[in-house]
């Protein structure tokens, strides 16, 4: 049975119905709110959960960030920032589902993370790691649809295929919302900062982003680029239209885009190898 929009929102906002969140997160949240707490203290808490630490370190060493030598949680916290480590911890259970059951979406997400990082670096934007994380998480709403409405998901894919429309349009028709909005709800219920929740919620409609339109524009362009490249499989068959507002916000031009595509394709070779390694593990 298809769930209505308000039902769906209720389910998503109720974190108890989501894949279990590690206990560590609550402690981490209270510590990061406290200005007196040190990175070492927070790192110790995360390190106490070995499985979680292993997952965070693996992601911190993924081509989305481009560090490759992050060997401890306190290193990760210093290099990536507490916000990023917290988001990786929060989403690690969702990533686990993606790695196992939706490899195409996992590759797409890692690809967008890597592309967002490269764009942010090339444009000299601050907080590249946050932007990469937003890229990594941008389609998290799709995983929620898979977990919570697997029947509706089949209908969405079928409708998109039959009518040759975008997944986003099919989602709106069948569940009266879309993966971007659901991702936005989820990031709110996780208390992720706006700089992560806005790019997730508005990566298909950059104009709606109020405080972080540059980060949202980067994630939008990164998503379009990875779709255009045909890397991974987000379920989407067609390249979405590039939003002019995103193009203008980032001051893109043809030459810059050509350079970016070369760099991204180069990095995607590493992303592919990283995904294969994870699948074989």
């Amino acid at each position: 049975m298809t769930k209505s929009r308000s039902d769906l929102k209720k389910i998503i906002m109720d974190t108890r119905t989501l894949p279990t969140l590690p206990n560590v997160i609550n402690k981490l949240n209270s510590l990061s709110d406290n200005e007196k707490s040190s990175v070492q203290e927070m790192a110790r808490i995360v390190s106490s959960d070995q499985v979680l630490s292993a997952r965070i370190l693996r992601l911190a060493n993924s081509p989305s960030y481009g560090f490759y030598r992050v060997s401890t949680i306190s290193n990760a916290m210093i290099l990536l920032g507490v916000n990023v480590v917290k988001s990786l911890a929060l989403s690690s259970s969702i990533f686990a589902i993606m790695e196992k059951d939706s490899i195409g979406l996992w590759e797409h997400s890692l690809g967008v993370g890597a592309a967002a990082n490269l764009i942010a670096n090339k444009l000299g934007l601050p907080e590249c790691e946050e932007i990469a994380t937003a890229g990594l998480l941008h389609d998290i709403g799709k995983v929620i649809i898979t977990i919570k409405c697997s029947e509706a998901e089949k209908d969405i894919l079928k409708l998109a295929h039959e009518r040759q429309i975008y997944i986003l349009e099919a989602e709106r028709e069948i569940i009266d919302t879309d993966h971007a909005e659901i991702g936005g709800w989820l990031s709110k219920s996780w208390f992720l900062p706006d700089k992560l929740s806005e790019p997730i919620a508005f990566h298909h409609d950059v104009a709606k982003s109020k405080n972080h339109h540059i980060k949202t524009a980067v994630v939008h362009i990164a998503d379009v680029l990875i779709c255009a490249s045909g890397f991974g499989n987000s379920g989407e068959s067609f390249v979405p239209p590039i939003q002019k507002i995103a193009w203008d916000t980032l001051n893109l031009n043809e030459q810059l885009l050509a350079e970016l595509i070369n760099e991204i394709e180069d990095r995607l070779v590493e992303v592919k190898a990283f995904c294969l390694e994870m699948i074989n593990d």
Binding site: A228, S237, F238, V239
Partner: peptide, 9 residues
């Protein structure tokens, strides 16, 4: 495949 992906835009 590239043509197909871009066929709508």
């Amino acid at each position: 495949k590239l043509d197909y992906r871009f066929s709508k835009t």
